[in-house]
Design a binder for these strands. Structure first.
Length: 821
RNA sequence: GCCUGGGUGGCGAAAUUGGUAGACGCGCCGGAUUCAAAAUCCGGUUCCUUCACGGGAGUGUCGGUUCGACUCCGACCCCAGGUACCA
């Protein structure tokens, strides 16, 4: 054995060993219970950043730990290969997105391999492989036939100079990031998936996802946003250009209906358009509203503004005429694009009413002594109805019911369950994505591409002349005979949202070479994913779409399970110099330099040691020296003991007192690490536990051969426990410690209860909750014995002498608190 | 704005069920080794106070519950993630 730790040599030897044995290839016939361990696959941006290192190291730690626990583990890897950055590279540097992406994949695969991740590379694929997206197109057509796909207009960010649609991210302060032109809202026909049909199931199943963090479930619940309310019809007073006779709004507060003093509609609402046709001021306002982005955060941050129209509606209960306003904060996408406004009891309506001098009417009063001054703010809590005719005096629930009933009796309203969740718009006006398998025929309308003609392959030999998708001008792609009538027709040129690819890749990993539609029977061996690891930034969109997609696949009888991910670990962000290191930021730290300088084990250990997984970390090189020092120490300790000979049999009875202490620490470390790895998923404390054990071993002075044996046992525990985190050095030291069996998958040792027994314990003595002394007692001592010893402790006695003892609390083997007055 | 997290020494953090706040590591200080340095090893390291024993304060802020609060409750401040076309 070399006296000096040489990470490069150790790591390449271990990696060669695993590769030669194909250690991480997973099969359905493997021994043990199946365990599907998955980390969110990366976008191939060019090189790994520290966020990737963290995510995939965590995944690998879980993978290797479960192998030690006897599971048949499958850990695959692939590439989320479609997306914007490839197009940007193409536009900027003239490299076709396909070759740019393939080059990135090759480089990043090499980086992952040098990090020693235990991945089954036989399952690798990229989402831009036609063999993969073929099945996405196939399912889309099936869903179209089932009525779960439809086309409707929706708003996009339009760059009038570049003549292209911009992603929200490409809009900076209302301007296109390349052209600098003021972005406009523009309506376009787009494809949608009916995720709202699954809203209730997506909500209910959250209650059964015990392996998910509560915070993520909470975010998804709020995103789905189920609410119980009432739809109310307001009759529209006839006016020039107004076609509709009634205006429907949704409210969760029908109890406040008598306090409605106006109605507000979105700027794209038919009433707004009608009003704009009659009134240039309204037209100007509607035009002004087009110069907002489509991002909800921007909408919420902007100054609330509106304009009155000449149109009026009739209050369904009072018959009173209420003005219709056009307001910039009403979303056309949500509900009916119109809201009733009750400034007395809704803060946003209150502010709007104050700004435009609209009457504020109190119809709710507090039941308790809560503050209620409508000159200061709206009163938004539930309360008792007042100034509401026959409804006055009712509380929230009774008022809700009575108003809903009154509306229903007149056929002017109905109780409804509403969801905040909107259908999933999957069309993107971009080149580098999966082509949407639809054909537009002048005679037949929209016709899906027949199954036999799938996949619609994305042409990869393309030239970017500007920012528009090359597909829109590529005649060889565009022209196609209509599958129905044979007449010349044109292909859809939009591609899918890349969330489509990432919504089912985990299922394909179970059977990456399946020729059956999408997946074959192997999927039901591996799915659902037992442990899914990924960034917290995916807590809502990706995870919700993937859950939805899996249910679509279930309903197409492709998979058996209801939910795709049994356990979920959400990672905090990796920050560097205060900057977010997302997949989209190109300037993220390159771990290659660190790998070259320190080796994979040190980088992995430092990353795991930096913080618990769910916390964000500010990454710096500072921790690397410490991690390397620790691995060197483990190396040197092992070397020292191995040089003096390995003791195969442990003579427990021959141990010195210090030997018994070391053995207790050794097994306590095993137990603690098992709990941290398995239950708590907190790996920084695993590293510190092994550090502590190593400190104990190096301080330990063996008194005899039994003691030397216990040190060897402790070193084996240290090596085994650290092996999921630093697998290469562990692989090497394991052999040095006389272990001939493979470390990967070696059975995790059972904790010997006898080894943990402790005769003496230290107890803390408090007086009035302040620590005044410490006492040594036999473990399990009786309360009065403990109290007597506590009171005789000099510093404790000092604080209780001459005082009346009011209370005595004893927490067995831990603490005594004496309360004096 | 809204939803979800987070805030503990000079720094990264630990404290698992309400029971010794600061384990472990970085950095720094002192020492050993060395011609010298690096590396390594040993000791110290929350702040204030004390020769010392000890004492006081302390987990974003303010308040509450409790024998006892980083932990539970209420209000607030700040930071991060998401906000439907970044992935």
């Amino acid at each position: 054995m070399n006296a000096v730790y040489d990470p490069k040599a150790v790591e390449s030897a271990a990696q060669a060993h695993w590769e030669a044995r194909d250690t991480f290839r997973a099969t359905e016939s493997g021994a043990g219970e199946k365990y599907y361990c998955l980390a969110m696959f990366p976008y191939p941006s060019g090189n790994l950043h520290m966020g990737h290192v963290r995510c995939y190291t965590l995944g690998d730690v879980i993978n290797r730990y479960h192998r030690l626990k006897g599971f048949n583990v499958m850990q695959p890897m692939g590439w989320d290969a479609f997306g914007l950055p490839a197009e940007n590279a193409a536009i900027k540097r003239g490299i076709p997105p396909a070759s740019w992406t393939r080059d990135n994949i090759d480089y990043m695969r090499g980086q992952m391999q040098s990090l020693g991740f235990g991945i089954d590379w036989h399952r690798e694929f990229a989402t831009c492989d036609p063999d993969y997206y073929h099945w996405e197109q196939w399912l889309f057509v099936k869903l179209y036939e089932k009525g779960l796909v439809y086309r409707k207009n929706s708003v996009v960010n339009w760059d009038p100079v570049d003549q292209t649609v911009l992603a929200n991210e490409q809009v900076e302060n209302g301007r296109g990031w390349r052209s600098g032109a003021v972005v406009e809202r523009r309506e376009m026909a787009q494809w949608f998936l009916k995720i709202t049909d699954y809203a209730q199931e997506l909500l209910e199943e959250l209650d059964r996802l015990d392996g998910w963090p509560e915070s993520v479930k909470s975010m998804q619940r709020n995103w789905i946003g189920r609410s119980e309310g009432v739809e109310i019809d307001f009759a529209v007073t006839p006016a020039p250009g107004v076609e509709s006779e009634s205006l429907t709004v949704y409210t969760t507060r029908p109890d406040t209906l008598l306090g409605a003093t106006y109605v507000a509609v979105a700027s794209q609402h038919p009433l707004a358009i009608a009003a704009a046709a009659q009134d240039p001021a309204v037209a100007d306002f509607v035009e002004e509203c087009k110069r907002n982005t489509t991002a909800e955060a921007d909408m919420a941050a902007m100054e609330k503004a509106g304009i009155a129209t000449a149109i009026e509606v009739i209050h369904p209960l009072t018959g009173e005429a209420l003005p219709v306003w056009v307001a910039n904060f009403v979303l056309m996408e949500y509900g009916s694009g119109a809201v009733m406004s009750v400034p007395g009891h809704d803060q946003r309506d209150w502010e709007f009413a104050r700004k435009y001098d609209i009457p504020i009417k109190q119809v709710i009063e507090p039941i308790d002594d809560a503050d209620c001054d409508l000159d200061q703010a709206a009163f938004t809590a539930h309360g008792r109805l007042v100034n509401s005719g026959g409804f006055s005096g009712l509380d929230f629930d009774a008022g809700f019911d009575a108003v809903a009933q009154a509306l229903a009796d007149n056929d002017q309203g109905r109780r409804v369950t509403n969801y905040r969740l909107r259908d999933w718009g999957v069309s993107r006006q971009r080149y580098w994505g999966c082509p949407i398998p639809m054909i537009h025929c002048e005679k037949c309308g929209v016709v899906p591409v027949p199954e036999a003609d799938l996949p619609v392959v994305l042409p990869t030999e393309v030239q970017f002349d500007g920012v528009r998708s090359p597909l829109t001008t590529m005649e060889s792609f565009l022209n196609v005979p209509c599958p129905k009538c044979g007449a010349p027709a044109r292909r859809e040129t939009d591609t899918f949202d890349t969330f489509m690819e990432s919504s089912w890749y985990f299922a394909r990993f179970a059977c990456p070479d399946a020729n059956a539609p999408m997946v074959d029977e192997r999927v039901n061996y591996w799915a659902p994913v037992d442990h899914y690891v990924g960034g917290i930034e995916h807590a809502i969109l990706h995870l919700l779409y993937a859950r939805f997609y899996f249910k679509l696949m279930r309903d197409a009888e492709l998979v058996d399970a209801d939910e795709p991910f049994t356990n979920l670990l959400m990672l905090g962000m990796v920050l560097q110099g205060g900057k977010k290191m997302s997949k989209s930021s190109g300037d993220a730290g390159d771990p290659q330099k660190l790998l070259d300088k320190y080796g994979a084990d040190t980088v992995r250990t430092a990353m795991m040691f930096a913080a618990p997984p769910d916390q964000s970390v500010e990454w710096s090189e500072a921790g690397l020296e410490g991690a390397l020092r620790f691995l060197k120490r483990l190396w040197n300790l092992t070397h020292d003991y191995a040089a003096k000979g390995i003791f195969a049999d442990l003579d427990v009875d021959g141990l010195s007192a210090a030997g018994r202490d070391l053995r207790r620490k050794s097994f306590a470390t095993l137990a603690r690490a098992d709990d941290d790895y398995g239950r708590r998923k907190q790996f920084n404390t695993v590293v510190s536990a092994v550090m502590e054990l190593c400190n104990n071993i190096s301080k330990f002075e063996p008194a005899n051969d039994a003691d030397r044996g216990v040190a060897i046992e402790a070193l084996r525990h240290a090596v085994l426990v650290i092996s999921p985190i630093a697998p290469h050095i562990a692989h090497h030291l394991w052999a040095e410690l006389g272990m001939s069996e493979e470390l990967v998958g070696y059975p995790w040792p059972a904790v010997e209860a006898d080894a943990l027994v402790q005769d003496q314990v230290q107890m803390v003595v408090q007086v009035n909750g302040k620590v005044r002394g410490k006492i040594q007692v036999a473990a399990g001592s009786a309360q009065d014995e403990v109290l007597a010893q506590a009171k005789s402790e000099p510093n404790v006695a000092r604080f209780i002498d001459g005082k009346t003892i009011r209370k005595e609390i004893v927490v067995p083997d831990k603490l005594v608190n004496i309360v004096v007055g």
